[in-house]
Design a binder for these strands. Structure first.
Length: 198
DNA sequence: TAGGCGATGCTCT
DNA sequence: GAGCATCGCCTAG
C-alpha cells in the first residue's frame, strides 16, 4: 500500500488547528512485521496553558518531548497499562501536543488483530490505548520525528476528511468542558462513551 | 446496552 | 500515597 509522506509546512503548528487538521491524515508504522497504517479519525488538543495537559506543571523527563520541536512523537503510559500516542505542536520550548484517540485501520489489519485480540475492524484502533497496541507504538518511539524518513511517519490524506464534529475531551477532570476533541462524523471507528457524537 | 470496577506502573505531591 | 488524556470483563436489566 502506497502513501505520500506529509511535508514540513503543510500542517499548522498551533495546537487546536493541528488537532483539527490531523483528522484524515494517515499514521504509518513500518517494521519487521510489515506496514501498519491507519487514518486518523479522532484527536484531542492539549494546548499551552491547559490545566489538563501534562505540560501544565512544566518540563519533566516524561514530558520532555512536548517541549521539543513540533510534529514529533510524545508517548506516555497511562494507568500503568496503556501507552498513548501524541503528536507535538507549537514551536520548541512551548509544551503542547495533540492526542491521537482513534484510527480507521488501512494496512496490516491481520497484525493488528493478532496484537489486540479483536476481530471487528472498526474496533481495532478505537481508543488511544488500543490504537497504540495495534500499531506497536511504545515509549521507545517517544521524541521521534514524524515528518522525516523513519519507522513512524505521517502521510497525506488519500481523501479529504468529511464533516468534523467537536466535543469536550474524554476522561479528564480539569478543564473538562473545553471543546477540544475533533472527530470525523461519518466513521464508526471513533471512541468515547456511546461514541459521544452529538 | 449501560454502568461499575479492578488491573497496573509510573509521576508528582 | 494519591491520582491518572484507559480498557475489558462482569453484572443487571
Amino acid at each position: 500500500m502506497h502513501f505520500d509522506a506529509a511535508r514540513e509546512g503543510e500542517l499548522p503548528v498551533e495546537t487546536v488547528a493541528l488537532a483539527r487538521a490531523l483528522v484524515g491524515y494517515i499514521l504509518v508504522h513500518d517494521g519487521p512485521w510489515g506496514r501498519l497504517a491507519g487514518r486518523i479519525v479522532e484527536t484531542e488538543a492539549y494546548p499551552p496553558g491547559d490545566p489538563a495537559s501534562h505540560a501544565y506543571r512544566g518540563r519533566r523527563p516524561r514530558n520532555a518531548a512536548m517541549f521539543g520541536e513540533p510534529f514529533h512523537a510524545y508517548v506516555y503510559r497511562i494507568y500503568g497499562v496503556h501507552d498513548c500516542f501524541n503528536i507535538t505542536s507549537e514551536p520548541a520550548e512551548v509544551g503542547a501536543a495533540v492526542l491521537i484517540r482513534a484510527l480507521e485501520p488501512l494496512a496490516g489489519l491481520e497484525v493488528m488483530r493478532e496484537r489486540v485480540g479483536i476481530a471487528a475492524e472498526q474496533d481495532l484502533c478505537r481508543g488511544p490505548g488500543r490504537l497504540a497496541r495495534a500499531l506497536g507504538l511504545d515509549r521507545t518511539l517517544d521524541g521521534g520525528a514524524l515528518l522525516l524518513p523513519g519507522p513512524l511517519w505521517l502521510a497525506r490524506p488519500a481523501r479529504p476528511a468529511s464533516e468534523i464534529g467537536v466535543t469536550p475531551r474524554i476522561g479528564i477532570t480539569r478543564a473538562a468542558e473545553r471543546p477540544l476533541r475533533f472527530y470525523e462524523r461519518s466513521t464508526r471507528s471513533v471512541s468515547g462513551p456511546r461514541r459521544l457524537s452529538p
